[in-house]
Design a binder for these strands. Structure first.
Lengths: 201, 201
DNA sequence: AAGAAATGTGAATACTGATTCATATCTCAT
DNA sequence: ATGAGATATGAATCAGTATTCACATTTCTT
């Protein structure tokens, strides 16, 4: 046998190795978030991590691989954060609001992560699609259930899922990429009002 | 004097040159749209255009430069298309619907262009921001006017502009990047209903 | 304390691909 | 029809950087 089933990459065997791997991953997040994938060199990552260049390859097979790992890790923590925030909110529309708030808070705290996911569309399209498919599916189920229970008007849950996802992403981008400083609560308020009541007078 | 004020790049002086430059630009659109910026080499572009590699540098200063030009050109034609489609639609909400329809039709016809704009976020951030600022500002003005005239409920026009923009982008991405095949009219229907009436029963 | 495994080093390698350049060929004004 | 600019060629240059490798050092086991 070589390694575990999915065998991400070369797993460390000691606590020391674990710490080094972690340091490299954190450095990569920081550096790639700041410079973007192609500008970030292995050298800049290992420098940031305080290790030699060769050390990188003890823990990761390639530059692509560490990037994929970053994307997956980020997806996990974001999903976790949102499901925590919405776990015991009663009513789909309320859960929707809290999910949006949690999302915006998360991206404000981790602008690098946001940028990385966006870039994954080009660097690792498969990871990117998986990430959004997972999100869309979550939304879709919630909306379908809410329509069935009569909480919201009937309508195509899958398309609506993409609409809500788009709203969240756009507001996140407005803040992170375009630097607008509106407080999260105000964004959530405006968006939720539109989602619930529409624009019509 | 050297050239015109902004002097994009080396302008051709004859019809022959004009045609070659055009061929290279079209080839770049096709190739970069298919392979992405970093995978697309100058060689692959000139091969597609049917000219020698050196010819590229007669008309463009660098790979970056042709990319920026592509982004600008695309922004122009998309804006043009949308303003044509909404020019004489009475009522903001109706114009909104037709704008969305025009946008989705355009991206369905030019998936490469869509991909290129997205990638501009990393390759040419300034062009990217300019592109969306222009869009957001158009939306914002329309919404502010509609709120003032009482067609829609009052609310922050700028945030709402980003919300509507996000909806359009997300549905475009669903089609182009994720390959879902829903007819444009159905998307427009569902989105417009949500935008006008909200989800609430 | 000794050997083996794990970890760490950083200089050398290897490759890719953007850009340049010396050299044709073409086009148009005269 | 001719010569000066404009356009075209594609092989050579050049730079950047991902990856490898031969050689330390540290840690763990016994």
């Amino acid at each position: 046998m070589e390694g575990e089933a999915g065998a991400a990459s070369k797993e460390p065997k000691t606590a020391r190795g674990e710490a080094t791997r972690r340091a490299i991953l954190d450095a990569a997040e920081k550096v790639i978030g700041r410079l973007g994938y192609s500008e970030a060199s292995i050298g800049s990552i290992t420098r940031e991590a305080g290790v030699a260049q060769g050390t990188f390859y003890i823990y990761f097979k390639s530059k692509d691989e560490i990037f994929s790992e970053l994307v997956r890790e980020m997806g996990r923590s974001l999903r976790h954060r949102i499901s925590d925030a919405t776990a015991d909110i009663p009513g789909r529309l309320n859960a929707e609001r809290e999910g949006l708030r949690a999302f915006l808070a998360f991206v404000a705290e981790h602008p690098e992560l946001y940028r990385i996911v966006q870039e994954a569309q080009f660097v690792d399209p498969e990871a990117y699609r998986a990430y959004f498919r997972a999100f869309a599916e979550g939304y879709r189920q919630g909306l379908a259930a809410a329509a069935a229970s009569g909480e919201i008007r009937p309508g195509d849950a899958e398309i609506r899922a993409w609409i809500l996802m788009g709203i969240a992403r756009s507001l996140g981008e407005r803040a992170v990429v375009f630097g607008h400083q509106t407080p999260v609560d105000e964004l959530v308020e405006t968006a939720h009002d539109l989602i619930v009541n529409g624009l019509k007078r």
